[in-house]
């Protein structure tokens, strides 16, 4: 059993920053946790009822109230400011695409459409894969995420990417993988009876290998 609070390894350009903020929060909350729980247990032990003990008659202290209002406020706002930068990188500022694909969720599969040799989507040389996303490393993969029926959630745990696919909306998702290999595609939003089976594989290639895979697929799928 894995009782660890360490995150599993991650493989995208932004995942280091996401994990970094996680660890910052883990330190802050972890220290707060130990201090407050220790105080609680210490007080419970020290001030437990004994013959002759009398509680102090004390209504509070404005100074202390101000202290424990301001200190948490400053800390959480700082976490907010740090988080904003990474959030904007992942979700707001989409870089120029190295590869553009369309991912369409439907009960209970992920369809991926690739641009084909002409490099443009929506042309006759587009080709598709089912429950597989193939992509090159070290290039921003820009995905147009769609759904045909209900809400699904496109989850790449190793890339630290998650985005709901909403019917009627085109949502842009991007990531850049840093290492070739096979990774997981999951669905993180309850989407019906077969929700549990809506998984797939993300395969990351070196640029040259991806080129080879892409051309062979394009040829195979030509009518």
């Amino acid at each position: 059993m894995n009782w660890s609070w360490i995150l599993p390894p991650s493989f995208s350009t932004v995942s280091g920053d996401i994990d970094g903020i996680y660890y910052v929060i883990l330190w802050i909350t972890g220290i707060t946790f130990f201090i407050t729980e220790a105080l609680l247990f210490y007080f419970i032990f020290k001030y437990r009822h004994k013959e002759g003990r009398k509680a102090t008659y004390d209504h509070g202290s404005t100074k202390m109230e101000i202290a424990w209002t301001m200190v948490p406020l400053v800390i959480v706002l700082w976490i907010g400011v740090v988080s904003k930068g990474v959030w904007d990188t992942v979700k707001v500022d989409v870089p120029a695409a190295g590869l553009e694909v369309i991912v369409t969720g439907k009960q209970f599969e992920w369809n991926v459409t690739y641009p084909g040799p002409d490099g443009a989507l929506g042309t006759s040389d587009d080709f598709e894969t089912l429950n597989e996303l193939h992509a090159p490393e070290d290039q921003p993969i820009v995905i147009t995420l769609r759904s045909e029926d209900v809400i699904h959630s496109f989850f790449l745990p190793e890339m630290r990417i998650k985005q709901d696919a909403v019917p009627g909306q085109d949502i842009t998702v991007w990531f850049e993988a840093i290492q070739p290999g096979d990774y997981t595609i999951g669905c993180a939003e309850l989407c019906g009876i077969g929700h549990t089976t809506m998984g797939g594989t993300l395969t990351i290639y070196t640029a040259a290998d991806f080129q080879a895979w892409s051309s062979s697929q394009a040829q195979q799928q030509q009518p």
Partner: peptide, 18 residues
């Protein structure tokens, strides 16, 4: 305290719906 993890938008990307 565990709520602060989810409140941070980038961390929530990973732990949302888990």
């Amino acid at each position: 305290l565990s709520g602060i993890f989810m409140a941070s938008t980038p961390v929530d990307i990973y732990i949302h719906d888990t």
